[in-house]
Nucleic acid binder design. Structure first.
Lengths: 222, 222
DNA sequence: GGCCATAAATGAATAGTCGTCAAGTTTGAA
DNA sequence: TTCAAACTTGACGACTATTCATTTATGGCC
């Protein structure tokens, strides 16, 4: 009777199960949506894989769309942390930003889970704005203060960048644009920071260290 | 028996009805999608308003998505023509491009028909790339040759711009970004052409003549 | 330990969707 | 006039997201 699973600190059995269910639903939805695409993933199948009744899903997410967004957010939060881990050591704040968007582009075009979701551009772009914005906007501001960028409204630049970035990723995965154009894409996105085309080209051409691999099956909470 | 509706010139009854049906479907779909949004517009309702059987729609459009794209294309083709009519008289090719994207942004955020469609970002952006691309890409190239822009891959810049533009429009209509930020949005989009932030600001600030009103109820064919 | 108001989970039922298909109709050449 | 080919039709199948009356679990209180 003294096991800690049996003796919650005055307020916790329900809350814990709720978090467990919510996480299980996100993981199940993430996996199924990854396998079959967002549209093809049915709420029933998600509920079954999460070992939960069909109606229970709606206690946690108002709609399928909201669940899909929650899935996206975990993917992005994850990536944001892994990027930050690497860029912590960079000296040039402009390079921090450049590395970030370059990594997002590469991930979005090579990771099947992202590719499957790209046909919901506006949702994924908005999620990126919110989840990776804190990092990106901070980097934009730091680089501007350092005189590297010319950005007066970092939030706006980041929003435009997310949409362009997702659009470019979609264009690459659908074959409308060759993957070899990635460099040019990054250059143009950097141009939005107000630096000229030359400076952007130089910045985009710098070597990039590798990310640490992502934690398998884990669910990092924002 | 001599009426011209009874005596088609050797090859035309079917073709004419087909074009009539196709046009009626696009008009019906455009109206209903405008009123209720793309998702809420059902194929049956569209077919009924076009005075056509439910199954017939699929003789003209493979899917609901394809029909929605056809609707968008007519809206954009229209706008492209009206923009060109005005910019014909401009002298600075950079200003032609600037006027174009500015007008698209204004239209997308103020015209209900666009606003309703914006939540299919990737579709609308792709349609814009294709329908307005011929104009925009030509303008980008002309301005680059004139030394006003620094664009080596006009197609790519245009594609990124369409996605950013649609994303920005969506952000404005959903209230995430104030409409007063339009100027800054245009400045940043112009930055993608490689000119500095100063030149972009000057270009965005120039006065803009008005468009001619759009032909009512008509359907201009690409 | 026993009890009960409340919150959460359930899954069958609902309402509505897209796309298909067999059957009927129109067309235009012979 | 005849007839094969093309077009149209609307009922229908297969599925869907979401709801809601019912069941089940929870934790404070006696």
């Amino acid at each position: 009777m003294n096991q800690d699973t049996e003796n919650p600190p005055a307020e916790g059995r329900v809350a814990r199960r709720q978090r467990r269910n919510r996480d299980a639903l996100i993981v199940a939805a993430r996996d199924i949506m990854t396998e079959k695409g967002v549209e093809a993933a049915t709420m029933l199948e998600i509920a079954e894989r999460a070992d939960v009744g069909a109606g229970t899903v709606y206690n946690y997410f108002k709609s399928k769309d909201e669940l899909a967004i929650a899935v996206l957010e975990t993917l992005m939060h994850d990536l944001g942390l892994r990027i930050q881990e690497v860029t912590d050591t960079f000296e040039d704040p402009a390079q921090v930003y450049a590395f970030g968007i370059r990594t997002v582009l590469d991930t979005a075009t090579s990771d099947v889970r992202w590719a499957q979701m790209l046909n919901r551009s506006e949702v994924i772009a908005d999620a990126m704005f919110r989840m990776m914005g804190p990092f990106a906007i901070r980097d934009l501001r730091l680089a501007s203060q350092a005189g590297r960028f010319e950005v007066s409204n970092a939030e706006l630049v980041w929003r435009l960048t997310t949409h362009a970035l997702i659009g470019a990723s979609l264009a690459i995965t659908t074959g409308q644009v060759p993957a070899s154009a990635s460099d040019q894409i990054i250059v143009r996105l950097l141009c939005m920071t107000g630096i000229g085309a030359n400076a952007a080209t130089e910045l985009a051409g710098r070597p990039r260290p590798a990310l640490k691999p992502e934690g398998k099956g884990k669910l990092t909470r924002p």
